[in-house]
Write a protein that binds this DNA or RNA. Structure first.
Lengths: 343, 343
DNA sequence: CTGTTAGCGCGTTCAC
DNA sequence: GTGAACGCGCTAACAG
């Protein structure tokens, strides 16, 4: 119909390897081999093909390639509390390392843990090569990973199921013991604990470890709930003060954000000086913990090494799905800071 | 070879629509229609198919479907400063809304802006349906989006190129004017400005707007560089003090994080009271700005409406690539806080 | 080293 | 409403 309107204007469609082959005067499979490591191709033909590809603006279609190769180079990353100050750093690390190893990140930022199932549905659909999960996974969900033959590595979540699952975590009990021991050595006796969300295994293990260590010293702390955010730290501090008749030596918080909230409450609501009147410690080592207004005494997670471990464990299992589960635990580093009188 | 060892154990491979078809006694195309909206299928067959699918654990292969339909349902999200406190909230919002509209997020967390090209290469390869970019894009990179026919929406970045580009942004000049006017009304006369990174358009527009408004009032502020992080705010404050002979009424920072750093420096290094001795204001309205230790006077970006706008603008353009560029600017909201004496 | 061939799993005509 | 047949763009044998 249109009188020879287009002398080459069907660039509406991305060029395919076939277009490149034609332009370079070779077969389509030769083009394919040029873009695949280990493809046997003569340097000369290769040069011709690459030239043609450049001129046409050709990029191999990862979707098609994934379909054929049964390997999408997609890694799902599920994270539940993206706005909680600790995870952005984790996500940045995971993303950097995954991209460096030629994998793409399919991100699922979960607002609540009950969105997991919906996310997993998509995970299966996209035939990801593997997944890194920083969210609570039910036993059934873990089984689904097995069923779908998708390797998974848990990040700072312990599996509740009976079977071990590959995971990396920071040694919460060890970190809490360091904190408690130093606080005890500093002369504190009347303790308060602010917990994480009830369904959070990491938070629970931190609180339990602290409690156990205090118990071993013959002490019973006041305990109150929390939800890992600033506000719940502030409120938790107030409840602890009430519970203890305003007699607190030290407050141990299940994470930094709550510890910062507790410090704010101690100062604003009670006019207390931290650490003179009360010591406050956290866990994680997030950026704001180091700010001059807080100088939080905490345990810093070695995020860099942990993300490195998570990614390499996953890639190993993508390469060899038969590898046995493995749990890699990293010791945290005590950051003395200035919000607690340590011994 | 293996004597009838597997009565159905070739589940090593995910079931395909063909497997489901066989189990349900229908054709493969019937199965396909069951999973596609608008596929004409009898309710009864549909039920049989869905039952078989459930039993086999079938999930349509999004990769294959994308290849055929030329629509991957993948949206690339490029973000440059993931660890900078403001972006996690943005990313969470984008992710939520994209997932809600049945799109997946292919995340590219950039450490530095020169990783953009590498990221874009992958963007093309994965044949994403569109992209949302919160990173600086060169004119050539913007042209690449056109060439590849990939709709793009910029988030809080203004295009430097000659052509307009679809984008959403917070009205920086307007926000700064609010701040400056209120500071002037509060009696401040000796101003200091801490800038963002030089190549950051948003930071620049904020500083320029503040400067212009001050200029209109016959005032010339002291100005110093910064890089959007806490530390550079603290250092910037010190430089401003030196520059101005310790005579500062108010410090305007290009973002909250630097404002918080400036407050910390004012208190720790100079023993100043904020806002009695010096007022400090920021921009963004990040979570920590509201903490009791800072109560930062700032302008909060309407992140929720902005992410909503970004996603809907993008999806509109995925549906109709011919839509003209459009720039949607949102007014920020002044948060009086308590770190500045406003008039 | 190169080209030919045969699918990967699904969406989509098009006849029936 | 349904099924047969084809092709999306690419990889992986295989034969030359």
């Amino acid at each position: 119909m249109s009188g020879r309107a287009s002398p080459r204007n069907d660039q509406a469609r991305q060029p395919t390897s076939y277009d490149v082959a034609q332009a370079a005067g070779v077969s389509q499979s030769a083009v394919s081999r040029c873009f695949r490591p280990g493809g046997s191709i003569a340097p000369e033909t290769r040069a011709r093909v690459l030239k043609a590809a450049r001129e046409l603006g050709y990029q191999p279609n990862a979707i098609a390639s994934g379909l054929k190769a049964k390997r999408s180079n997609l890694v799902a990353v599920l994270i539940s509390n993206l706005t909680n100050l600790y995870y952005p750093e984790v996500l940045a690390g995971l993303s950097r390392r995954l991209n460096a190893s030629d994998n793409r990140v399919l991100l699922f930022a979960l607002e609540t843990e009950d969105e997991v199932d919906a996310a997993l549905d998509q995970v299966w659909r996209y035939r990801v090569d593997g997944a890194i999960v920083a969210a609570r996974l039910q036993a059934a969900q873990l089984r689904a990973f097995q069923r779908h033959r998708v390797p998974v590595v848990l990040y700072n979540r312990l599996s509740d199921g009976p079977d071990p699952v590959p995971s990396v975590a920071c040694d919460s009990p060890g970190g809490e013991r360091m904190l408690v021991d130093r606080l005890l050595a500093g002369g504190h006796r009347r303790f308060g604990l602010i917990c994480g969300p009830e369904d959070n295994t990491v938070g629970r293990s931190r609180v339990e470890a602290a409690r156990a260590r205090l118990g071993a010293a013959g002490l019973t702390p006041a305990v109150t709930g929390g939800s890992f955010d600033h506000d719940s730290g502030a409120q938790g501090f107030r409840r602890l003060m009430t519970q203890s008749g305003n007699a607190l030596d030290a407050v141990i918080c299940a994470n930094d954000l709550m510890a910062i909230g507790a410090i704010d409450a101690a100062r604003e609501v009670y006019g207390l000086d931290v650490p003179r009147d009360v010591s406050v410690v956290g866990f994680d080592g997030v950026g704001p913990a180091a700010w001059a207004s807080y100088r939080l005494t905490t345990v810093r997670q070695p995020v860099d090494r942990m993300t490195e471990a998570a990614v390499s464990m996953l890639l190993e299992r993508v390469a060899d799905p038969e590898l046995p589960p493995e749990v890699r635990t990293f010791a945290g580093k005590l950051v003395p800071g200035g919000s607690a009188r340590l011994g």
